[in-house]
Computed example of a mutant assay.
Amino acid sequence: MPNTRSARKRVRIAERNRLRNKMYKTRIKTAIRRLEEALSGGDDDAIRAALRRALSAIDRAAVRGAIHRNTAARKKSRLMQRLKKLGRAS
Rank of each mutant, 00 (worst) to 15 (best):
R52A: 15
L51P: 02
R88L: 06
R33D: 05
G42H: 13
K76Q: 12
A54D: 00
G42E: 11
A14C: 07
R33G: 03
L51D: 01
S90M: 05
I58N: 01
L86Y: 05
I67H: 01
L55W: 11
K29C: 06
L79P: 06
P2K: 10
E15G: 05
R16Q: 13
R20K: 13
D44Y: 11
T30H: 08
R64Y: 01
S6A: 09
R48I: 07
T4N: 06
I28Y: 14
R8P: 07
R10A: 15
S90N: 14
L83V: 02
R52V: 08
D59R: 02
N3D: 12
V63C: 02
I67R: 00
R5G: 10
R20V: 13
A50I: 03
D44H: 10
R27H: 14
L86Q: 05
A46I: 08
L79S: 09
R78G: 05
A31H: 07
I67F: 00
N70Q: 11
E15K: 15
A50L: 03
P2Q: 05
N70G: 03
R52S: 14
I47W: 00
T30P: 10
A38M: 04
I47P: 02
K85G: 04
K25N: 10
R82G: 06
R53N: 13
R69C: 03
R8S: 10
L19P: 09
R27V: 05
L83K: 02
Y24V: 06
A57W: 07
M23Y: 15
Y24S: 10
A49S: 13
A7V: 06
R78K: 14
K25D: 04
R60V: 08
R10I: 08
E36S: 12
M80A: 10
K22I: 06
A7E: 15
R52H: 14
A57I: 09
E36D: 15
I13V: 15
I32H: 08
N70R: 07
S77N: 12
V63A: 06
N70C: 03
I28A: 07
A61Q: 04
R53L: 13
A50C: 05
G65E: 00
A49R: 15
R16T: 10
